[in-house]
Design a protein around this nucleic acid. Structure first.
Lengths: 243, 243
DNA sequence: ACAAAAGTGTTAGATTTACACCCATGA
DNA sequence: TCATGGGTGTAAATCTAACACTTTTGT
């Protein structure tokens, strides 16, 4: 799945000193790559090898090339790190604090993307690359905690109004998995009956007439996302206060 | 209100040739400055004097200086053009298409801001500066129509969930003005009784026990925004389809 | 008295919320 | 037969949507 790439993979956040003298302002992209393991929301991070941020975790990012579109740069980072293409991605915010990068003025455009965590094969050479539970992350390199928090907030806003969560799930999933996903992202608990009723009534999911295998209890029915579903102008779920 | 500014006011979009040789990628900000005249949503634009965009209208923007925060650059543009400070402003999206600027690679961070249109005193030297009805704009210079459309969409999303519209109104306003504002931004009509009931029940506005002057009909009561109102997790208005 | 816009209440329908028991499977 | 999680329905409360007449002011 890894496309051939004539440029060596460098992380803007670990190999940046060379740009200092060439650009007054450098532009980078940083990708918040979300995955879901069935229970908690995870994010793909790399260990910073900048001395200053020794042992801190960093988002995946890179300099935007002068002849490269912004979105293309973000997709390139994603492809180089995960081998994935055609995944859901959204630009979120641009961070440009003067002191955000020790190597000089770097303005970074932050994206988040939603991938199926099981489709990502981490390569041996990427031994610094790991999935982290979002809610366990306290500190990160650079301003990456701020970027992550901003992207989590955006994902929360988005998933309440728009059915993007399916990108984090396997093609076939149970209602329990779907509910776990919403609860993990939004940090709330839903009533099981109401949650199911809501999704089924929206016509967003389609019963596959299949059931789970290899579970030690009554197997759940499997569904898939119905791409043809018309989006009514309604919220998917309602979140009340106790987030 | 105009702060002293040691730099001459230049519009990134009209005086950019000098940067071409210095930066591989230049970063700019563009401001979508919204105002409301009581009936329609307006945006403050300047006439492009770039030959290529002769007679096209352009957003207000400028290069971000190497030692300047992004938000500071946007506030600077706003201050230089309107004399206003401390206005509502939100970063929306960053546009970086390769060919978006004829002078070279310029990535621009778009902001929108909400100002009281009557507080903006256009200076004589700004004869190219005008308020335009948003819905009448068909073409603009550069990719500015795309940027405007993106900011309008963001404003629509925001005003449905968050009481930002007050920034476009005078301190004292009638419920009719408030409703006109929502209708102008969202492009829908609301039932007057339901709209009033909704806002009054939210506790967002405070009755001033004053009425309009100089109207040739029954004067409306005046209200002000209640800053202390607790935001319930509810939509302010509901928009159904016919937008 | 007329014109123009302000102000006001009720009801039906839809949506949300709260809540508890039986079912299917593997061990 | 037990443990585990899957699957289901109903009723109360809240919210939304539809709808028309009276009041106040200036002319």
């Amino acid at each position: 799945m890894q496309a051939h790439n004539p440029f060596p993979i460098k992380n803007i956040n670990t190999h940046l000193t060379e740009i200092k003298d060439y650009f007054k302002i450098a532009v980078s992209v940083d990708c918040v790559i979300f995955g879901f393991d069935g229970n908690v929301l995870k994010v793909l991070l790399i260990k910073s090898d900048l001395a200053q941020y020794k042992n801190k975790w960093s988002l995946l990012g890179d300099i935007v090339r002068p002849d490269e579109e912004l979105d293309a740069a973000a997709y390139r980072v994603l492809r180089e790190r995960t081998g994935l293409e055609n995944v859901y991605m959204e630009q979120v915010h641009t961070f440009g604090a003067l002191n955000r990068h020790p190597a000089g003025r770097v303005i970074t455009v932050a994206y988040y993307s939603l991938v199926n965590i099981h489709h990502v094969q981490l390569k041996v050479s990427d031994f610094g690359l790991h999935w982290h539970a979002v809610k366990d992350l306290k500190q990160m390199a650079f301003d990456h905690k701020l970027i992550l928090d901003t992207c989590v907030k955006r994902l929360q806003d988005r998933i309440i109004e728009h059915p993007v969560g399916f990108n984090l799930l396997p093609k076939k999933f149970s209602l329990r998995e779907l509910q776990n996903l919403y609860e993990a992202i939004l940090g709330v608990k839903f009533d099981r009956r109401n949650f199911r009723k809501k999704f089924l009534s929206l016509g967003l999911i389609e019963d596959l007439n299949e059931v789970e295998n290899d579970v030690k209890h009554r197997p759940a029915k499997l569904y898939r996302f119905n791409e043809k579903a018309l989006l009514k102008n309604t919220r998917f779920v309602h979140v009340n206060g106790n987030g």
